[in-house]
């Protein structure tokens, strides 16, 4: 599964795009849990927008291997 990282998430993960493997029938919450474990600094963000196939993801949504995930933290520059 392809994960795109934006903003500070890119720095935390160390790459703009990573591939990860999830168990079958894994949900958005499962993915969040896995990422937070692997990259604990993501936990500190308070707000992290997760989109699946360019749409705001619901926590219980089941993920498919062909889905594109985007991790979007807030940015404040102007």
């Amino acid at each position: 599964m392809k994960i795109l990282a934006f903003g500070i998430a890119r720095e935390i993960i160390g790459s703009a795009m990573i591939e990860i493997q999830l168990a079958e029938n894994a949900t958005v919450t499962d993915l969040k849990f896995l990422l937070m474990n692997q990259y604990p600094r993501l936990n500190q963000l308070n707000s992290l927008l997760i989109a699946v196939n360019m749409e705001y993801a619901q926590p219980h949504q089941i993920l498919q291997d062909c889905d594109e995930i985007a991790l979007i933290p807030p940015v404040s520059g102007g």
């Binding site: 500070i8 500190q44 308070n46 707000s47 807030p74 940015v75 520059g77």
Partner: peptide, 20 residues
């Protein structure tokens, strides 16, 4: 709706710290 809570103050660099 997108970002209910702000990040900790020192977490996300602004233009002066992070460059733009």
């Amino acid at each position: 709706d997108l970002f209910p809570a702000p990040p900790p103050p020192d977490m996300i660099p602004d233009c002066a710290e992070g460059g733009v």
